[in-house]
Design a protein around this nucleic acid. Structure first.
Lengths: 142, 142
DNA sequence: ATGGAGCTTCCCATCATGGGAAGGTCAAGG
DNA sequence: CCTTGACCTTCCCATGATGGGAAGCTCCAT
């Protein structure tokens, strides 16, 4: 609080402060997710507190698995003070639906493989129900 | 058995017969996952029964979420009659580990979001715990 | 013989991320 | 003042698995 705006950070400092790599910060700017950063006379990018805040927002959203498209939407809603919370909730719940679908898919794969692995003795012998399944053999129908 | 080898299939027929797109069949050949296909005098690829079998193997493995690297390994083991089933089981269980890790990550994201969404009234008003979380606000510590 | 379906190769795009080269800038220490 | 090393800039390329599409050749049935 003593130094009002601790003075703008370079991209490396911003990266360290927010956990977003410098590469990704430039990429977010290039793709329009974030507006163009201020520049020094010599062309270095500068980031103020508000920018760091936005970067942390993006980082948090990515940690929650939102796509860049969704994050763009959320950033827009964040900056629109008159948004309805329903709009945000809808984006969030849509994403939860995606996550649940992906989880169900992975879960089905994992269960199938665990089941096959259980029946594979896993020793020196070549017989292997896992390969038999992959090869399309339906053991017990032979 | 009546027609010994029902005559080789073109890439389109192979695609239809195995559920692997023609694009992907060419890609698997190009990257060495599968050996080069036979060719007609005019350059068309031809696929025999054994090739179709291998394609179905790859398809099934992809359905189970194996990476191409893992599939290459599994194909090698499949074709090596003297492999130990332990080697196959180890690849499979390694993959199950990957799947379980990814599931846990997605599950954590989904739970966090569901939790936030529950507390978001989702109406006309702008107040939204979801955005507050993304923005780094820690409600209740204020 | 012609038309259309199917094949070939080649290039490009996705999504989010990282690696690295070539070159300019800045601050500290001799 | 000059050097050194850390940092910045832009530009290009790669990933993994997949699809889209163009230009041109081949095959088969009419």
């Amino acid at each position: 609080m003593n130094e009002p705006t601790a003075r703008a950070a370079t991209i490396g400092e911003a990266a360290r402060a927010t956990g977003v790599s410098a590469k990704m910060i430039r990429y977010y700017e290039e793709t329009g997710l974030l507006g163009p950063a201020e520049r020094t006379a010599s062309g270095y990018r500068l980031y103020g507190e508000a920018d760091l805040h936005a970067l942390r927002f993006v980082r948090r959203a990515r940690d929650l698995g939102f796509s860049m498209r969704e994050i763009a939407e959320l950033l827009g809603l964040w900056q629109d003070r008159s948004r309805a919370s329903a709009a945000v909730k809808s984006v969030a719940l849509g994403h939860v639906g995606d996550l649940r679908r992906r989880i169900a898919e992975l879960e089905a794969m994992a269960r199938t493989l665990e089941h096959l692995a259980e029946r594979c003795c896993g020793d020196e012998r070549p017989d292997c129900p896992i390969l038999d399944d992959l090869a399309g053999a339906v053991p017990g129908r032979d």
